[in-house]
Write a protein that binds this DNA or RNA. Structure first.
Length: 563
RNA sequence: GCGCCCGUAGCUCAACGGAUAGAGCAACAGACUACGGAUCUGUAGGUUGGGGGUUCGAAUCCCUCCGGGCGCACCA
């Protein structure tokens, strides 16, 4: 009964199919007309029933009949046996089919929350398909900034949601540990290294000037002495880069762990070059006639695939580009057997998407199985002023600083509060405020209140009632019914949020659930209400706690017992 | 100039192409001698940037104009 929407959907489809011939004839539908996509949704207005379907309007055109007539035909063939909870169906408005369920369906929903506990809302829609979620993938040359942090919160929640929906999820971090940026990084390290030995070597203009690098170099020297002072520069730079990148990766990993994010795979770009994977991809593109040479460089014919500009694969220096490596990387993910690739990238990378997809197509991969979430930038506010995030000015807010200032829960909540494609204004004062304006506390407070209620209960020497022994039909007030509906919605909400790759929908859901709970709690007494009612309400509250905990967990936010 | 994202209440944002566009904050007016007032109830606030189009139905899709962000490297 949990997927009640799916059940109704299936019954409608069945009405159109099984009684197919009859209904098709009476609808005047040609055999080849497909049943259009239609939606079963919870109507905004309660008077429109528990669920509504728009199928009749969708079919009106092909059937060349008014929607309400189509609806009547569907009704005629509807098998109530397939949907035991459906009490009656009405045709309403322009042609909606409004489904009214027996009141007991809400009690059944509550029963399932209690019985399934932490498993409630889990589903098998993913059918164990392998999904790769790649996110953050920050350059290992510095610390994580707000863009990385948003990507971390989004990526991790998407991964958690997909896992909850039965996908086989791999969280992956792509380490850009080679290329021009790393060379610049290495050159900067080398300058600092030689400076330590009294040589007057300036850090290159286009290099890295962070104060953290000097400390890294000191640690390097503490470990290796002056071993690299007189070695060939390439060898020196390589050793320095390897040492520093390892340090940065460790720091990034620590920060992300504090943020509640853990990866399954740390994938090295350098390894991709070393193993010959990049070279293979370039060779394959060449063999397929997808490349050409110009000015000493090897180009991919991206324009052929509708991309605005062709793209360099191999520089005139002979070095493969980041683009070439990225194509090889995504090919590698497909080759590892992932059925679905999801990347979370910053808005400044959006131009890269069509090029990578084009190259994957050229290689014969199904690029539609790659979804790239482009997230817009984060603006930090403090005291009503924008906090500039520039490496140059040094006013650079890192993930660590953010965690220090507002804590993990608020940070994670705020980053998934809005859809990825809207700019995010992050108000540090608000996130830090332990007050009613702060939505994180609003939700957590609901959970803490519930925990407190059960503490009170046990102080009175009472135990939670058994679900089987309680008559749930006494939960009839408006507040109780709304809560029950919301709980019943959870499985659908989770699936929608997962498949849409939109964790902010879950954020909205738990906020609304918390709100309905607070409203209920203000009006109705739980402990000490009349016998029978008390037990039923205790179970209702317990169920709210279960769902809140799950929702918060999926977002990487704690569900405190006390605040 | 070209491409992508965005433009919704004073502010920050929701809304699978669905029925009367919703929340929070801010404003105003209220509520428990009891389970945590970090709560709740109510009022007010809108020509969904402008204009066309598609559709039974548009904030949502298409065109165009205006405004903002981000890209348009032999960087990543």
């Amino acid at each position: 009964m949990v997927p009640i929407k799916a059940e109704i959907r299936a019954a409608i489809t069945q009405a159109l199919h099984r009684a197919g011939l009859a209904s098709r004839v009476s609808l005047g539908l040609a055999e080849e007309v497909e049943i259009p996509d239609f939606i079963v949704s919870s109507p905004r207005e309660e008077k429109f029933g528990d669920f509504a379907a728009n199928i009749a309007m969708q079919l009106a055109k092909p059937a060349r009949r008014p929607p309400r007539e189509v609806a009547a035909v569907i009704l005629e063939h509807f098998d109530y046996g397939a949907c035991p909870w459906v009490e009656r169906i009405e045709v309403a408005g322009p042609g909606f089919l409004n489904f009214y369920l027996r009141p007991q369906w809400l009690q059944e929903a509550l029963r399932q929350v209690i019985e399934q506990g932490e498993r409630f809302g889990r589903s098998l829609v993913g059918a164990g398909r392998k999904v790769n979620v790649e996110f953050v993938s920050a350059n290992p040359t510095g610390l994580l900034h707000m863009g990385n942090a948003r990507g971390a919160a989004l990526g991790d929640s998407i991964a958690a949601l997909l896992d909850f929906c039965g996908f086989d999820v791999t969280r992956e971090f792509y380490i850009n540990d080679t290329g021009l940026q790393i060379e610049r990084f290495a050159a900067s390290l080398e300058a600092l290294y030689l400076q330590e030995f009294g040589e007057d070597v300036p850090v290159p203009e286009d290099g890295y000037h962070g104060a953290d690098l000097a400390a890294t170099v000191k640690r390097f020297i503490a470990e290796t002495g002056d071993t690299y002072r007189h070695t060939p520069p390439e060898e020196r730079r390589e050793a320095l880069a390897r040492f520093a990148v390892a340090e940065k990766i460790a720091a990034i990993r620590d920060s992300l762990e504090r943020f509640g994010v853990r990866y399954d795979v740390w994938f090295s770009e350098q390894e991709l070059h070393r193993s010959g994977a990049v070279e293979r991809v370039i060779r394959e593109l060449k063999a397929r006639g997808e490349t050409f040479e110009r000015e000493g460089a090897l180009w991919f014919k991206a324009e052929k695939y509708g991309v605005e500009k062709d793209e360099v694969l191999v520089r005139s220096t002979g070095a493969a580009t980041y683009f070439a490596a990225d194509v090889a990387y995504h090919a590698n993910k497909f080759d590892r057997g992932f059925a679905w690739l999801i990347n979370v990238w910053g808005a400044d990378h959006h131009g890269h998407v069509p090029r990578v997809k084009a190259a994957l197509r050229a290689l014969g991969y199904d690029a539609d199985r790659l979804d790239v979430i482009i997230m817009q930038l984060v603006r930090l506010f403090r005291g009503g002023e924008i906090v500039r995030m520039s490496k140059r000015t040094g006013e650079f807010v890192t993930l660590d600083e953010l965690l220090e200032e507002v804590g993990r829960d608020a940070a994670r909540y705020f980053f998934v509060l809005r859809s990825a494609d809207s700019h995010l204004d992050f108000d540090l004062d608000l996130a830090r405020a332990q007050s009613m304006e702060n939505p994180v506390y609003y939700v957590q407070y609901a959970h803490a209140r519930i925990a407190s209620l059960f503490r009170q209960l046990s102080l009175k020497g009472k135990a939670l009632p058994e679900i089987g022994a309680v008559d749930l039909s006494v939960l009839t007030s408006e507040e109780e019914e709304r809560l029950l509906r919301k709980l019943a919605d959870f499985p659908d909400e989770v699936v929608d949020a997962a498949l849409d790759l939109a964790p902010h929908r879950l954020t909205g859901y738990i906020y609304e659930l918390a709100g309905l709970f607070h409203a209920f709690y203000n009006v109705h007494r739980v402990i000490g209400s009349e016998p029978g009612l008390e037990e039923a309400r205790l179970l209702l509250v317990q169920a709210v706690g279960i769902v809140l905990r799950q929702g918060l967990r999926l977002l990487g936010i704690s569900a405190p017992e006390r605040m």
